[in-house]
Write a protein that binds this DNA or RNA. Structure first.
Lengths: 204, 204
DNA sequence: AAATCAATACCTAAAAACTGGTATTTTTCA
DNA sequence: TGAAAAATACCAGTTTTTAGGTATTGATTT
């Protein structure tokens, strides 16, 4: 398996290389340290698998993955990041990235993920990831929030006022206010600040 | 040189070990993955040098360094982190930590820093630190906030109103409102919902 | 077919937040 | 020691949120 490591932290990048370079079926064919370099490298030497960080200079991992998978549908990408946040995980899933691993994983988990992804499987089955992925569902179910209510919460998180949300959704301000009232009641919260904190903590 | 690696990202921790384990004068005597484990390990097996991350569970690197250097003045510590934040660098200097290295340093820089610190030198003169002083703009913004402003944010996160915060801090509501006004201006945010989201994302 | 739920909309009044000022004292730091 | 920054406090006016309600319509469920 020809592997490219893309991570702007050189010590991490080199560390991973050192960690897996002696595996019998793995060949590190390159290391890059920013987003643009990934696409440039792939054009010249097509790897089988890319270990891809999110936070990189010039272009972030999400953009890189999206561009690459359009041009190279058979390319396998494993997102390798410190963030267990649902929004990243979902974004990578939407794009079609095959694996997602946290930086506090072990060498064994990394190798298992690489091999499994190489064989064509999707690897998002990390404990922490799964807990985070289903948090929205469980949160919504737990508190009996409706679709519309969740939608309103998402706009509130963007700092929008009732009026702005009403305009966006072609509703009356009264309606949006009713939704807000019901949300606060259902979640037993005092005000919007409280709500945003709660929503962030529960992955909405 | 007996070295302890303290970093909660196992892949990074193991990667560093793998990277330097074969250096002739280096012996990795331990690896730990949270702040409490550092002090516990040092009690049992006194290392010469600790490679210490800032972000760790249970206790952060700054606290760990401060505690250790009080009890073990001859211990050498190298802060090994992704943050090129002047506040962190100054804090570590104040405590008396001997080295500060960024995670995007090279293996050579790491080895040079380790050897130099072992010989009794202070190693903060890293080019990368200086170059990266102005990145991480969200963090820079964060640190433009005053103590009081951060305090107010924390109470806002609890869903408290200006009046409630004023009562808690024995201030006038006017004062609290002034702080809120300044916070929104400094962070370029529209309202409290926006602020709470920002605060959560930046770990305030 | 009746009941329930989701989504919609309206009303009022009070409370709180936000805007755009000014201004004094205290603390910090060069 | 003097200037700058931080913390404090005030005011007036506007906008937004929150807390009480009520009420209609359409979809789902029993």
């Amino acid at each position: 398996m020809k592997i490219l490591i893309a991570d702007d932290h050189q010590l991490f990048n080199d560390g991973i290389k050192s960690l897996i370079i002696n595996e019998f079926n793995i060949e590190i064919i390159g290391q890059v340290y920013d987003g643009n370099a990934v696409t440039a490298f792939v054009k010249k030497h097509l790897p089988d698998i890319i270990l891809l960080d999110i936070n990189m200079p010039l272009m972030n991992g999400i953009e890189v993955a999206e561009i690459l998978l359009e041009s190279y549908p058979n390319l396998k990408i494993i997102a390798l990041t410190m963030y267990a946040e649902p929004k990243y995980i979902k974004e990578f899933q939407r794009i079609g990235v095959q694996g997602y691993l946290l930086k506090n994983a072990s060498k064994d988990e990394l190798l298992k993920t690489i091999e499994s992804v190489f064989l064509g499987n999707k690897m998002y089955n990390n404990k922490l990831i799964i807990n985070n992925l289903h948090s929205e569902d469980s949160f919504v179910k737990l508190h009996n929030l409706t679709k519309r209510e969740v939608e309103v919460i998402k706009f509130l998180k963007e700092g929008m006022t009732s009026q702005a949300i009403a305009d966006k959704l072609f509703l009356s301000v009264f309606t949006v206010d009713t939704h807000r009232k019901n949300i606060l009641f259902k979640l037993n919260l005092k005000n919007t600040a409280d709500l945003i904190k709660y929503a962030m903590e529960n992955g909405i």
